[in-house]
Design a protein around this nucleic acid. Structure first.
Lengths: 225, 225
DNA sequence: TTAATATGTTCACCAAATATTCAAAATACT
DNA sequence: AGTATTTTGAATATTTGGTGAACATATTAA
């Protein structure tokens, strides 16, 4: 739905962000340092959002951001900053950097996706509805609740995020590892079986729709509309 | 409900103001400098309110204001000035600049919205009711008070603004961050827990209606009609 | 059928989020 | 300036949720 640049020197992070945003239908461009980021932004006229890591070789995120804001053509480009530490966050605030949003590492990919959605909405680039209805199952992201036959089923935070993840990936088999990385964050190293426990609870709360979360034996789970 | 121009060289501020006023149903036009502001005002005959930053490239806010007042067609246009410093405020007063209202940066978006509403009311352009009644809970923006069973419950300024924010966003889950940005101002970076404290007090004063402010665990709060 | 492996289920302990209280700091009022 | 009020976030209490071990059950392979 949009062309997005991710600039970070860590391949792992780039891949992670790119993968998730690709799945939301975005076209991803990657840069491994600040210089490359600037080059891509200037060459491609169609970039609609830039995600910049603060710490990068050649030119750091602040420097790239400043450059973006100085150029007439890119001055209005929505920019999201990735910061590793609280101090950098302070710096962001203190300098009135002009970033539109910031996310501290480590982040949950889902949270990042949600914020990207938000930024694009603000920029008037996106139009998808935040409410999904599958039969009598309502996933309402505005109210931040899931209803069955009109009744809030009272999901806990993790259950809710799990639900959103499934909703965004319906019909796709998801390994426990993927789920853990998406919902718990990429640097979470807990037991894979924890996923099962949450699936169990989510299934129970979904009632008749519990069976919509299918077990993919030997792999993971899949949410079927 | 009205066509409003926001002129400021900082994208962030323009976005912020535009977002909030759009949500109140206004149509927003944006200009990033004084020259552009004048051009838009002359081209669009239907602008009903102009919000001008004092510090802008090309032509500063005072200059734009003077231009507006000099032209027969726009002389009566309500104008709100945004000033960054107290000195500029002095200048505004001292020069009898002819602005209808002024807001100092940093401002709370809600305060700005309220003042815009006021200006439009004065100009006879707006007609929406400023009083909301939910059962025995009266939110009266004219009298600037909230009544329970007809009795003013004596909200403090922050509590009142919080209440208004909730009223304007009922049924929507609001993160602490959003609340802080909206009620405390866009550049306030205090403790998120502060929100809890104010919620606590507001809930107490709302009595039986306190429970209408629901906790959305792991996210924030939501006001239910 | 049996063994091996994977998933389902339960539960007690631990972690995290929120509620509440409070006193210092900021602000407004006189 | 002095007083009263409001705001704030630290400290503490309470509530709620997350976690993974343990055991049960189901599936698959041999």
């Amino acid at each position: 739905m949009a062309v997005i640049l991710i600039a970070d020197d860590e391949v792992r992070i780039r891949r992670l962000v790119a993968d998730f945003l690709k799945r939301d239908g975005h076209t991803m461009l990657e840069a491994s340092n600040g210089e490359e980021a600037i080059r891509l932004i200037e060459e491609h006229g169609e970039i609609e959002l830039a995600i910049l890591d603060v710490m990068m070789p050649e030119q750091d995120g602040f420097s790239v951001l400043r450059h973006i804001r100085e150029q007439e053509l890119t001055a209005k480009l929505p920019v999201m900053m990735l910061t590793a530490r609280a101090e950098e966050l302070d710096q962001l605030h203190g300098l009135q950097s002009g970033a539109d949003d910031y996310v501290t590492k480590p982040f949950s990919p889902l949270v990042l996706c949600a914020r990207v959605k938000n930024l694009l909405l603000r920029a008037g680039k996106s139009e998808d509805s935040n409410a999904h209805k599958f039969g009598e199952l309502d996933i309402d992201e505005i109210r931040h609740e899931v209803r069955l036959n009109g009744e809030d089923i009272g999901l806990t935070p993790k259950e809710y995020e799990l639900m959103i993840y499934f909703k965004n990936n319906r019909g796709i088999a998801l390994s426990r590892e993927k789920i853990l990385n998406a919902v718990w964050g990429y640097d979470y190293f807990g037991d894979l079986r924890t996923v099962d426990t949450h699936i169990k609870k989510l299934r129970a709360k979904l009632g008749e729709y519990g069976s919509k979360i299918e077990t993919v034996r030997g792999y993971g789970y899949r949410f079927e509309v």
